Amino acid sequence: MPQTPSPPRPATALSTGAVARRLGVSPTTLRSWERRYAIGPARREPGRHRRWTPGDVARLELMCRLTADGVPPAEAARAALGAAPGAPRARRAEAAPSPAPGGPDALPLGAVRPECRGLSRAAVRLDAPTVAELLEAALAEDGLVTAWEEVIAPTLHAVGRKWATAGERYVEVEHLLSWQISAALHRIRPLPEPPRSPPVLLACVPGEQHSLPIEALTAALGQRGVPARMFGAALPAEALRDAVRRTGPRAVVLWAQSRTTADPALARSVAGIEWGLRGARARPALLLAGPGWGADVPAPRTERLYGLRSGLAVIESLAPPRAATGAAGAGPFAYGS
């Protein structure tokens, strides 16, 4: 006897928070749209949280595109509801989405997670509160490393590509997004540092202003209890060398965004700095990060870092220090081989 075919599985329904992250709006905005314009989930069960089907999300995406193009929210909601399946053909045609996904101002994201599209939409709108909320949600749900690699960095790269092809446009989007990312990273509280443990020094080379990637690395080290000293953008060369001598670090991370700022001579001089008692001298491991550095390392005990996750693994694999050079507070720690 032939078996009755199983009914098709229903499409996955999303929570309000998940939809908000995908669209780049706050959950409060979605609830407000539902209350004011009746653009909510098509089906709701009493006593349960709202769940949004793919059709519900498609209507919201259309409303977001229309409002981003300057259509008043009430009109955008009517158009989005009119575009629902089963609506009159004329009304669906009025609200037909633009050929480019997200409209002409959308960022060139490619194949990315939905959270990237939501974050990029909020950034293009210069909606700082929603950008901050989406960043906090990504960091809380995915953790810093995954959120950086799969949500934050792809969105930043898309903003950079858009800026590079649009003249002076979108500079404000990049600045706002970068500021919000930096603020979110600074809100991550590090674990207490182990006593008398040599730090990792992190700095941009002189002339380099792009510090976000090593801000992320600093925050990730702090989450793991690894002592870190972050000096930010464009640290002068002599100040960097002085900091190395004064702290006896486990490692020095130098970030260079472009070939014009990367300085192999500075890298060699930092790698050659020694400290400690005669006969027990130590040097830091030098880690070169960023696309500005070439494939070849310019000095011994130097290594290239190629990403946040792998960079953390390299730093955590470094040998712990042997001992201090003297009494507590008398000098920097010696670095063990």
Rank of each mutant, 00 (worst) to 15 (best):
residue 227 P to V: 04
residue 101 P to D: 09
residue 50 R to M: 08
residue 221 L to C: 06
residue 127 D to Y: 01
residue 39 I to H: 03
residue 289 A to L: 10
residue 27 P to A: 12
residue 162 K to T: 13
residue 324 A to R: 13
residue 183 A to D: 10
residue 214 I to D: 07
residue 98 S to V: 03
residue 270 V to P: 02
residue 306 Y to H: 15
residue 231 F to E: 12
residue 242 D to P: 00
residue 289 A to V: 04
residue 119 L to D: 03
residue 330 A to K: 03
residue 20 A to F: 05
residue 228 A to D: 01
residue 102 G to W: 08
residue 293 W to N: 09
residue 106 A to E: 08
residue 201 L to C: 06
residue 69 D to Q: 14
residue 293 W to I: 07
residue 164 A to P: 07
residue 215 E to V: 03
residue 192 P to G: 13
residue 328 A to D: 14
residue 59 R to H: 09
residue 160 G to K: 07
residue 151 V to Y: 07
residue 174 E to F: 04
residue 311 G to N: 04
residue 63 M to L: 15
residue 263 D to C: 08
residue 265 A to G: 13
residue 162 K to F: 08
residue 163 W to D: 11
residue 261 T to P: 01
residue 289 A to E: 04
residue 101 P to C: 09
residue 263 D to L: 04
residue 267 A to N: 07
residue 93 A to S: 09
residue 302 T to L: 07
residue 213 P to H: 05
residue 121 R to F: 11
residue 22 R to W: 15
residue 13 A to I: 00
residue 281 R to D: 03
residue 199 P to A: 09
residue 294 G to V: 09
residue 255 W to K: 00
residue 307 G to L: 06
residue 83 A to Y: 07
residue 171 V to E: 15
residue 126 L to R: 13
residue 251 A to Q: 03
residue 188 I to N: 02
residue 28 T to W: 12
residue 227 P to M: 03
residue 213 P to R: 04
residue 326 G to N: 02
residue 129 P to C: 06
residue 190 P to K: 05
residue 28 T to D: 15
residue 313 A to F: 10
residue 277 L to Q: 14
residue 132 A to M: 05
residue 111 A to C: 01
residue 184 A to V: 03
residue 179 W to C: 03
residue 302 T to A: 12
residue 228 A to H: 02
residue 253 V to M: 06
residue 55 G to Y: 08
residue 213 P to L: 04
residue 198 P to G: 09
residue 199 P to Q: 12
residue 46 P to I: 09
residue 229 R to H: 12
residue 64 C to G: 02
residue 298 P to M: 08
residue 144 L to A: 00
residue 83 A to H: 12
residue 56 D to Y: 02
residue 140 A to C: 01
residue 216 A to I: 08
residue 14 L to G: 02
residue 246 R to I: 00
residue 210 H to C: 10
residue 114 P to S: 08
residue 295 A to S: 11
residue 258 S to C: 09
residue 330 A to L: 11
residue 92 R to E: 10
residue 272 G to I: 03
residue 122 A to Q: 04
residue 301 R to E: 13
residue 121 R to V: 09
residue 66 L to K: 05
residue 106 A to D: 07
residue 172 E to S: 13
residue 136 E to W: 00
residue 292 G to R: 03
residue 99 P to C: 09
residue 2 P to T: 11
residue 321 P to E: 13
residue 329 G to A: 10
residue 224 R to M: 06
